[in-house]
Amino acid sequence: MRSLLIRCYPARWRARYGDEFEAILVERPLGPFDIADILLGALDAQLRLRGRRATTEHERGFTMTLRIGGFAAILGAALLTTSIVLGIGVVGSVEPVVPGILLAVGSLALLVALTGLSAFQARVHPILSWAGVAVTALGAIVAIVGIVGIVGMQLFRDGYWNVMTMGVTATFVGSTLFAIATYRTAALSRGAALLLGVASVMTIVAGFGLGPIPLGVTSIAFALGWFVLGIHAVRVDRPATA
């Protein structure tokens, strides 16, 4: 009877408390009150452990990074696309500073997206995921140094231009690594990951002399890849699987 009652508790509970619980049951004869109380206790333990599996703090944390990453990806993609459209003058002339600001804020949002979504995916491919974040973050810092140098310095502008180009290229390399991790993890859209990866590589190629139109097209494809990944991240609320 005792072992039957103890078996009503979840295995994890029994592994921790089973021995000492049985020792108590041995100490005194079991009446109807005790049996009913133990069965209610077993039900409570079953419900508690089941509920905990579904909503552990750990899982909630990952869901939060997924949502933040998703919204940041959508925002960043929208700002990047707007910046490109304004920058190439499709909708008339605007102050050059406007697309510049949109590009800066959009890039920052994409950096947040990359970090949030990588935190979610790092459970499956930690090295690849965090390498993508590290390379992109390093590239962003180098690019900022280059931009500050170009704007603020009268001398060595060509040198700062090269620094900025290296930084921007590194951010696209980081995005490519992130796209590979996303494709391999398969927690988000593999199609969007493929689009982002191909667009990142093509943007690097276009940046080295293919002209503004191909660069604009590949950049918009890059933004589209982020946008679709962001939509998936916001809608998908499930743990990553290999």
């Binding site: 000492e20 619980f21 108590i24 005194r28 009150f33 109380d37 133990i38 206790g41 077993a42």
Partner: peptide, 24 residues
């Protein structure tokens, strides 16, 4: 230990505490 707590509670309140409630 658990059984001593059950005895203590019963002595103090006049009501028994079941093992299921104790461990929950």
């Amino acid at each position: 230990h658990g059984y001593a707590i059950m005895q203590d509670v019963e002595q103090g309140t006049g009501r028994p505490m079941g093992a299921g409630t104790l461990y929950a």
